[in-house]
Simulated scan of single mutants.
Amino acid sequence: MPSFQQQFRQAWQKLLPQFLPEHWSVEQHERCLEKLLHAYQEPQRAYHQLQHIVECLALFEIVQNQIEDALAVQLAIFFHDVVYQPRSASNEQESAMLMRQQLAGALPETQLDKIANWILATQQHAVASESDLAYLLDIDLAILGSSPQRFAEYQQQIRQEYVWVDELIYQEKRHAVLRQFYLAQPLYQTRYFQQHYEQQAKANLKQALA
């Protein structure tokens, strides 16, 4: 099976034909890819790294027939965690800004605005008014409804990112986050994720909160 880096690279390269060649060259596409790869392999990341993006892209492939602006959703996936510092509260804002810098001129300004707003929305995961955004947010949270084994790995990865936090404080804060997800009715916003991930997510969260 290809590595996460290979899968990430292949998915990015598939996007090239969707850009207008007069505004976006093969060289720009490759430079942007290298910047993304470098970012997602930074040492402070354990969960917010290539694996997470590849898993999100795989889910996009499954639901893409339900999505109107496929390019925007994929770009939002690629860029939504491109800036990630566990101690920072502005990761989403900086990720949206970096996306704008990298793709300036490559897409219409209205599309860049939309992608930026979607990246910002991944911070709060509020109820979305747009169908595409609802799918993006559900894709981002699909890890909660993964297999018990993958969910356990995810829990360990998040703890690793916050290794500098005292254990008691971490457990208290983490419990509050997971409880908020557990109490959400429903957790997922789209029918597909409600049907395929909701039940497992609630089981995983209940186990984690026990």
Rank of each mutant, 00 (worst) to 15 (best):
L183R: 08
A72Y: 00
I143P: 06
F19N: 03
R45I: 04
R150Y: 11
Y170Q: 04
L168D: 14
E130G: 08
N117L: 14
F79R: 00
E92L: 08
K206E: 15
M1H: 06
N65A: 12
Y162T: 09
A70K: 12
S146A: 13
Y170D: 03
I119S: 01
A89E: 15
L133S: 05
Q185P: 03
E161T: 02
E42L: 15
P148I: 09
A58L: 07
Q160L: 10
V83F: 10
Y154P: 05
Y188K: 06
L71Q: 07
E153Q: 15
R9P: 00
L50S: 14
E27V: 12
H38S: 13
E92C: 08
R179A: 13
A89D: 15
A58I: 01
V73P: 00
A58T: 04
V163G: 13
F78L: 03
H38A: 14
E42A: 15
S147P: 12
P186N: 06
H125I: 03
C56Y: 01
G105C: 12
A96D: 06
Q64D: 08
V163C: 11
L178W: 07
Y192D: 08
Q111H: 01
Q44C: 14
E61I: 05
H48W: 03
I169Y: 13
W12E: 03
S88F: 10
L107N: 00
W164C: 10
L183P: 00
V54D: 01
L137D: 10
A76I: 00
L205M: 07
L98R: 11
W12V: 11
A46V: 09
C56N: 09
P2W: 02
K202H: 12
A201Q: 04
